[in-house]
Design a binder for these strands. Structure first.
Length: 257
DNA sequence: AAAGGCACCAACCGCACGGTG
DNA sequence: CCACCGTGCGGTTGGTGCCTT
């Protein structure tokens, strides 16, 4: 038994939105907020399902949407993030203010995939970009490194738990925990799995300590630079990963940036 | 000028997940 | 524990306009 699409109810409109419908939706949300999406169309007087309203608002009508073509810089960011995260469009969009996941997905499918194919014809790295999930099939990397600052000699043969805590406040102490799994891709390079990147990059900043936010931001910047360098053969993935692993686990201090 | 092919992108669909009663 | 509901996400579709023949 297949669930009927929500818009198949009698009288609900599908397809492109008219300017009048847009205006009704914008006016309603500006006054009342969106609250419950399912109840919204009825309250606003729209013959649409809640899902359609939410999509129209988040992908097109939201005031903070950036319109117009993507800059080269934005495209490069998408390419690098896609290399890190795979098809996690919402996580990528979280790093591109004003751009929606849908928009990024469209740009990737229509422009960037072709551009990469053209630029990296016959290159092993391109296989990885086309099918990032292949990484999961690889054997885990076996290496010994500190797990936490508290137990620096522990082995992390397959996974590690990273914890940082706010040292500045005992009473309001918080911690943020991420799980890091490492794998080897098809060209023999050690990589940290995409779920880790997804968790870190899409994490709610308010739940992180200030110190950890610095680490994440610097890690992100470094990863982008590294990804840029990789194409020219300069990037040493293994040493880069070891470096950041030590920073994350407290085995090394965060250097001056 | 007309027809067919192609590219683009807004919108839809199905699924997964978290919250709640 | 379970069912239901609301929401978010990623994959896909279909309409439109441009380009080529």
């Amino acid at each position: 038994m297949v669930r009927a699409p929500c818009c198949e109810k009698m009288g609900l409109k599908k397809g492109p939105w008219t300017p009048e419908e847009d205006q009704i939706l914008v006016n309603y949300i500006q006054i009342h907020g969106h609250g419950n999406w399912r109840a919204l169309p009825k309250q606003a007087g729209l013959l649409r399902c809640g899902k359609s309203c939410r999509l129209r608002w988040t992908n097109y009508l939201r005031p903070d949407i950036k319109r117009g073509n993507f800059t080269r810089e934005e495209e490069d960011t998408i390419i690098n993030l896609h290399e890190l995260l795979g098809n996690k469009w919402s996580a990528i969009a979280a790093r591109l203010p004003g751009r929606t996941d849908n928009e990024i997905k469209n740009v990737w499918n229509t422009h960037l995939k072709k551009r990469l194919k053209h630029n990296n014809h016959g290159n092993n790295r391109q296989q990885l970009i086309d099918s990032p999930k292949d990484i999961k099939k690889q054997q885990p990397v076996k290496f010994t490194a500190p797990v936490t600052a508290d137990s620096p000699q522990q082995s992390i043969s397959d996974a590690s738990i990273l914890t940082t805590s706010d040292n500045n406040s005992n009473s309001n102490s918080r911690s943020t925990t991420f799980t890091m799994n490492t794998e080897t891709n098809e060209v023999g390079v050690s990589e940290i799995d995409e779920n880790f990147w997804s968790e870190v990059l899409s994490a709610d900043n308010s739940s992180m300590t200030a110190d950890f936010q610095v680490v994440v931001d610097q890690f992100f910047t470094s990863s982008l630079e590294a990804a840029n360098d990789y194409g020219s053969g300069v990037y040493d993935t293994d040493s880069n990963m070891d470096f950041w692993h030590d920073i994350f686990t407290g085995a090394a201090d965060l250097p001056e940036f």
